[in-house]
Design a binder for these strands. Structure first.
Lengths: 122, 122
DNA sequence: ACTACATATGAGCAGATATTCATATATAAC
DNA sequence: GTTATATATGAATATCTGCTCATATGTAGT
C-alpha cells in the first residue's frame, strides 16, 4: 500500500508499454539540459524581445535607439535587455554614456531567424 | 505641450541617431510576426515541454507513456500537450482509448534540437 | 561642484503560467 | 447498462512576467 501510494504520486495511470517507456527513459534529455534549453527559448518567447533581437541581428544599436525603433520606454527596453543579457543572447560595449548592444553570435541569430521563418510559412 | 507629452509617452529619451533609427524602423519585424514567433518560442520555453518534445521527436508515445517517461501526472502532461497542440508543435491520432502523440514536423524538431545543442556547447 | 543626459534597477501591480485536484468525456469489456 | 480505463478539462492556487514609475548610477560638459 505504501508502494502503491508512492507510484500514484509519480504516475497514476498504468497503461505503460514497458519496452517503449524504458527506451524513452534511457534517451530522456537530462533535466539540467532541458532546463537550460527552456530558459533559452523562454528568453526568445516574448514579442518585445523578438523585435529587439531581430533589430539587433541587423545592426548594433544603443538603448535609446532600440526604444525609438520598437516604440517602448527606455525602462522597459532596459529591463528586457537584462533578460537577453542573462540568456547570453546579446552582448554590449559601453562608449561614454552609451551602451551599444548587438546579437551575441550567429547561432543565436540563426535560431531566431529559423523561428521567424517557421511562423512565416505556417 | 500636448505634443511633448505624447512624445514622452512613446520614448522619453532623445539620443536618437536618425538615419540608423529610420533604417531599423523600416526593417522592423511586423508586430504580428513577432507575436507569432514569440508564441512559438514560448511554447518551447518550459522544461517539462522540452522533455516531452525531445521524447516525441524520437518516437510516437501515448499520454500515459509520456507521463511515465518524464515522471509527471497524467493531468499535467495532458495540459502541456494542449499547449503544444495549440502551437502546432505536436500532432496526434486517436486509437481506441489511446491518443498517440508525435512531433509535428522536422522543422519543429530541428528548432528544438538546435536550441538544445546551443546550450550543450555553452 | 553642478547640470544634463544615457542607462540600470527596485518596488509595485496586473496579467499570465504550471501544477494539483476533482470531474467530465469517451471508448472498451463484461 | 455497468464498470474500468485513457484522456481532457475546469477551478483554484502559487509563482512568474512585463510593464510603469520613481530613482540610482555613471559619464560628459560647463
Amino acid at each position: 500500500m505504501a508502494i502503491k501510494k508512492k507510484e500514484r504520486a509519480v504516475c497514476e495511470v498504468s497503461c505503460d508499454h514497458p519496452e517503449t517507456v524504458s527506451l524513452a527513459k534511457k534517451e530522456l534529455i537530462p533535466a539540467r539540459q532541458a532546463q537550460q534549453a527552456a530558459e533559452l527559448f523562454k528568453a526568445l518567447g516574448d514579442a518585445t524581445r523578438v523585435k529587439m533581437l531581430r533589430a539587433l541581428a541587423k545592426r548594433e544599436l544603443c538603448v535609446c535607439d532600440i526604444a525609438a525603433v520598437i516604440k517602448m520606454s527606455q525602462s522597459a527596453v532596459s529591463h528586457q535587455l537584462r533578460v537577453l543579457r542573462g540568456a547570453r543572447l546579446v552582448k554590449y560595449r559601453k562608449e561614454g554614456k552609451r551602451a551599444w548592444y548587438s546579437i551575441n553570435d550567429r547561432h543565436v541569430a540563426a535560431l531566431l531567424l529559423q523561428g521567424i521563418e517557421h511562423v512565416r510559412h505556417a
